[in-house]
Amino acid sequence: MLARRMGKTRVIAETGAGQHGVATATAAAALGLECDVYMGSEDMEWQQLNVFRMRLLGARVIPVDTGSRTLKDAINEALRDWVTNVRHTHYVLGTVHGPHPFPMICRDFQSVIGREARAQILEREKRLPDMLLACVGGGSNAIGLFYAFLADAQVRMVGVEAGGKGLVPGMHAARFAGGSRGMLHGAMSYVLQNEDGQIGSTHSVSAGLDYASVGPEHAWLHDIGRVEYTCASDEEALKAFELCSRLEGIIPALESAHAIAEVIKRAPGMDPNAILLVNLSGRGDKDVQQAMRFLPEYR
């Protein structure tokens, strides 16, 4: 609708796991806009279902073969497209990152999550939750949940990054644990980089968390101490993926499974009456193909 209002006839997007690409393709189909989605070729391999969905919705999925062939490189290509075609193209940036005002635009749209969650929990429990948890890649779902609660000082907040295979350079995407101040994609934030300012490679079992930088507002919330940031490893996330499916009957996205992994770590040490609100930000049916590689016992 923003694109429409600006008189633009084409939208582009980047996507990691494919959810944002599918969402953009859906909106474009409904509004009759041309739609191109950039996706790392490595991510495309593991998210074939979403690639099919996007194409079915009329979008063109453009494989990105540069660099690490994941989300960061998809953003590079989308930015290059955008500066070339800005006269008629709107870039629907899928996370709270990128040059101003993209982080704000995305946050304001995502903040519906927190507003609804806050109203619902007050209605049901008559009090605020003790702790909010969400996974953080670029960090849009987390900002979306946290934003409405920022003024509620008693509500603790935890953002969970991808710990990957361990906190060794190239093996994870935990920017707060392993990164430093830097600028990538037009935003100053915590960035995984070497001492010369070259952007580091990243790894996560979940494509949506596999990114070398984090939304600048998260960097701010980290620095002022309002939100605590931690990470969950691939293994912990897969365990949580399994447990949530088994115990709740909900197959969570591998991204969201990182937040659940943190619940599993923290809940046993907390007051049994404490309320933990975790953002199940995505569904896991897109991830079953990837999960099958790691959980062969269910084949």
Partner: peptide
Amino acid sequence: FSDPVGDGPVIQQAAQRALRGGASM
């Protein structure tokens, strides 16, 4: 630079070659 978003393929690849050769500021 590893992620030159303002550059087309020719200069991107040149940067990659230079970085592989160990170039730094």
